[in-house]
């Protein structure tokens, strides 16, 4: 018997948006359950054993951040947030509350599917042990030896740079907010010193990217955080 089809729950109150997202997901082989309200979405998430949730933040019956707090109490299912708002603070709150990724409206199907693929891949790998070697572009990081090479040449990393890189690799494809990074690398006391992260990301890019002003792997989500992309975009 073939592997069961992956299940996605789409929580969105706009019918037309639901329609094209559903079309896009179904071409990729997803089973899509639609929910119009947050309440229904939460019920579906509990009963349908989803592999992915796509959540609109602007729902009529509640705040997406609350939904995430509820959900994260009992589920680790990847959540991609859709936001019509320009305000970065909403996205940060959603990410801090446990969302994996976000898309700002209007978005194209290409962007949507790329995010969906990244999220489901991470879900698959979550079960397996992260290998001792991780590669992106021409960079190779060996966790057992605590070394990094670029184009075959060894690269010297400071302890903080190494911790930062490890964190990005552990969450490859996912958006990490400044606060999450600060908490993990520097500890909770530094959660307001956002420029630490930016400066060290700059160091990492200079050591690991071909052109640090046009990075291909360590990407900036302006005012929100960072994301490590394993496969360079075309």
């Amino acid at each position: 018997m073939a592997e069961p089809l992956p299940v996605a729950i789409l929580i969105e109150d706009e019918r037309q948006i639901r329609r094209f997202v559903r079309t896009a997901l179904e071409t990729e082989g997803w089973v899509v359950h639609e929910a119009e309200t947050m309440r229904q979405g939460l019920t579906d998430a509990g009963t349908r054993k989803p592999d992915l949730i796509i959540l609109d933040l602007g729902l009529p019956d509640g705040d997406g951040v609350e939904f995430l707090h509820d959900l994260r109490g009992w589920s680790k299912v990847p959540v991609i947030v859709l936001s019509a708002r320009v305000n970065e603070q909403d996205k940060i709150e959603a990410l801090d509350a446990g969302a994996d990724d976000y898309l700002t409206k209007p978005f194209g199907i290409g962007e949507l599917l790329a995010r969906v693929r990244a999220a489901s891949r991470r879900r698959m790998e979550a079960g397996a042990e992260v290998g001792s070697v991780f590669e992106f572009g021409d960079v190779k990081v060996d966790f057992s030896l605590r070394t990094a090479h670029k184009g075959g040449k060894p690269i010297h990393l400071t302890p903080i740079e190494y911790r930062l890189l490890s964190l990005l690799i552990a969450n490859a494809g996912k958006v990490l907010t400044h606060r999450q990074i600060l908490r993990e690398v520097w500890g909770p006391a530094h959660s307001e010193d956002g420029h630490y992260v930016r400066v060290y990301m700059g160091h990492l890019r200079h050591k690991l990217e071909d052109d640090p002003t046009q990075p291909k792997h360590i990407l900036t989500e302006t005012a929100v955080g960072y994301r490590l992309v394993q496969a360079a975009r075309s």
Partner: peptide
């Protein structure tokens, strides 16, 4: 933005 999102997505789909 909501109708524009639908428009972009539907056209693409």
């Amino acid at each position: 933005r909501t109708p524009l999102t639908a428009l972009v997505g539907l056209a693409e789909s």
